[in-house]
Simulated scan of single mutants.
Amino acid sequence: VSPLDEQGIFKFAFKTSNGINVQTAGSALETIGIFSYTSPEGVPIETRYIADELGFHVVGKHLPRPPPTPSYILRALEYIRTHNEDGSPKAPTL
């Protein structure tokens, strides 16, 4: 553990006897970190995160990802972008 420095930055890290590893650093406005462990199935798990004014964002290979957007949805969105509510094409913008 590192106490706040002159700029208000802290650092924190620890490792437990059962393999949990945590590292965090940041300030009151932004914090980044990594934690890792081995799942009960023996799979290594690593999670990285950042917490800032935009929220809490987490990344990890073990986290679910949304499926790709279907092509018919992409076509519908393109139609909405290029047409008026009455179905007429929008005038090109420069």
Score class of each variant (00 low, 15 high):
68 P>G: 09
23 Q>Y: 10
3 P>T: 10
5 D>N: 14
36 S>R: 12
13 A>T: 01
24 T>Q: 11
70 P>I: 08
71 S>P: 04
82 T>G: 13
84 N>E: 03
79 Y>S: 03
31 T>E: 06
74 L>S: 09
38 T>E: 04
53 E>S: 11
57 H>E: 11
13 A>I: 01
46 E>M: 11
83 H>V: 00
30 E>R: 14
46 E>H: 12
84 N>M: 01
9 I>H: 05
63 L>M: 05
69 T>R: 13
78 E>N: 09
9 I>L: 07
25 A>H: 05
37 Y>G: 05
53 E>T: 15
71 S>T: 05
72 Y>W: 13
23 Q>H: 11
51 A>K: 08
75 R>N: 14
1 V>Q: 15
26 G>Y: 06
72 Y>N: 07
39 S>W: 04
53 E>K: 05
66 P>G: 11
43 V>K: 03
62 H>D: 14
23 Q>A: 04
2 S>Y: 12
25 A>M: 05
84 N>P: 00
8 G>T: 00
15 K>A: 13
58 V>E: 11
11 K>G: 00
22 V>H: 06
51 A>R: 09
61 K>G: 07
55 G>E: 07
25 A>L: 06
38 T>Y: 00
43 V>C: 10
55 G>D: 04
57 H>A: 04
4 L>Q: 09
35 F>I: 15
11 K>W: 00
2 S>W: 12
91 A>P: 01
75 R>H: 15
41 E>A: 11
70 P>D: 07
54 L>H: 15
82 T>Q: 14
44 P>A: 01
79 Y>P: 00
29 L>S: 13
73 I>D: 12
70 P>G: 11
7 Q>Y: 02
26 G>R: 12
22 V>Q: 08
43 V>W: 00
36 S>V: 02
13 A>Q: 12
1 V>F: 15
57 H>G: 15
20 I>K: 02
74 L>Y: 06
78 E>L: 04
63 L>D: 03
73 I>H: 13
31 T>Y: 03
72 Y>A: 11
2 S>M: 13
50 I>E: 05
22 V>S: 03
62 H>A: 11
17 S>R: 06
49 Y>C: 07
18 N>R: 14
56 F>D: 14
49 Y>G: 08
41 E>N: 13
35 F>N: 09
28 A>R: 13
62 H>F: 07
81 R>V: 01
87 G>P: 08
67 P>S: 15
60 G>Y: 05
74 L>T: 05
89 P>M: 08
20 I>F: 04
19 G>H: 06
82 T>R: 13
23 Q>L: 06
73 I>Q: 10
78 E>S: 07
12 F>C: 03
92 P>S: 14
67 P>D: 10
79 Y>W: 02
7 Q>A: 10
61 K>R: 09
81 R>H: 04
74 L>I: 02
92 P>Y: 15
73 I>K: 09
53 E>D: 12
22 V>F: 12
